[in-house]
């Protein structure tokens, strides 16, 4: 077990783990984008900024209020989700009758504002966030050391994604959501308060991004740019997966993370671009995306 394909095993498994973790974030973020797009028909460009806000919320809760990681995991999505609800009510809701591109432009503007404010407040360099003591240390798996926190991130992301999937596919609330995605006017005629559902869906999607941010805080340094670069990759992930299927975006997210990790081992120079190349190939072969409906 020392070498696999001429690559030292620890390096290979280390990169695979990193890929899995990146994949977890791709999956969580693309899931949120897909849920928001399904009902609101806008691409939420601010998703990366809201992911960053989640990480900063965790940092602020710890530094300013003395509330630790577990409180942050609960409170950060509520706080950031609430800002999302306010944004939807005040601004985004005015655009539903217009071309979808305006939604993209508006949320891009909001992302610039949020990122700019945080850069003014905290500068461009990152802030460290300590791994909670319960999740510190590492397990010896025999062939590699697995830091407990990293294992936790992958498992937490999987649970979160599956819970979202169950909520949408198997519950009554999810059935309303799916029905409203197909035909909002008809669902409203049945007495469901669709505008409120739209607002809460946006809030929930934003909260999902914020949880991602809290999970990411101890791994990446907490900095204002952490979301935007990520969200562009997530856009490519969304194009590859197609936004038709919840399960599809989860699988695509994790899968592409692993592919990226493997590329880092076998051809490091290409690791930053591999997902975009895959996107181009998928578009040529299956324009609707792997799981998309044409």
């Amino acid at each position: 077990m020392d070498e696999i394909f001429g690559i030292p095993a620890p390096l290979l498994f280390g990169q695979l783990l990193l890929g899995l973790i990146n994949g977890a974030f791709y999956a969580m973020l693309s899931l949120g984008l897909a849920v928001i797009f399904g009902l609101l028909n806008i691409i939420n460009f601010a998703h990366g900024a809201q992911f960053m806000m989640g990480a900063f919320a965790a940092w602020m809760l710890l530094e300013w209020a003395g509330l630790g990681y577990w409180w942050a995991l609960l409170l950060a999505p509520i706080i950031v989700g609430f800002t999302g609800v306010v944004m939807e009510r005040l601004m985004i809701s005015r655009l539903y009758k217009l071309d979808h591109l305006y939604g993209l432009l508006l949320t891009f503007g909001l992302a610039l504002i949020i990122e700019g404010i945080f850069r003014n407040e905290f500068g461009s360099s990152g802030m460290p966030y300590r791994i909670p003591p319960e999740l510190a240390g590492a397990w010896d798996l025999g062939f590699m050391f697995l830091p407990v926190y990293r294992g936790w991130v992958v498992i937490a992301a999987l649970i979160l994604c599956l819970a979202t999937w169950l909520l949408i596919e198997k519950t009554r609330l999810g059935a309303y959501l799916r029905a409203a995605t197909e035909n909002a006017a008809l669902v409203q005629a049945f007495g469901v308060n669709v505008p409120r559902m739209v607002t809460l869906t946006y809030g929930a999607g934003v909260a999902l991004a914020a949880i991602g941010g809290v999970l990411a805080a101890p791994i990446y340094s907490v900095n204002p740019q952490m979301g935007t670069n990520l969200i562009i990759v997530v856009f490519a992930v969304v194009v590859i997966g197609g936004m038709g299927s919840i399960l599809g975006s989860i699988v695509t997210g994790f899968g592409l993370g692993i592919v990226e990790g493997l590329t880092k081992v076998f051809w490091p120079e290409a690791s930053a671009t591999v997902i975009f190349v895959i996107m181009a190939i998928v578009l040529l072969a299956r324009p609707a995306g792997l799981f998309g409906r044409a």
């Binding site: 601004m91 432009l105 508006l106 891009f108 503007g109 909001l110 992302a111 610039l112 504002i113 949020i114 990122e115 700019g116 404010i117 850069r119 003014n120």
Partner: peptide
């Protein structure tokens, strides 16, 4: 400048 540009966008 980024904040102002974002505000103009909005």
């Amino acid at each position: 400048v980024t904040v102002i540009q974002g505000a103009i966008f909005v």
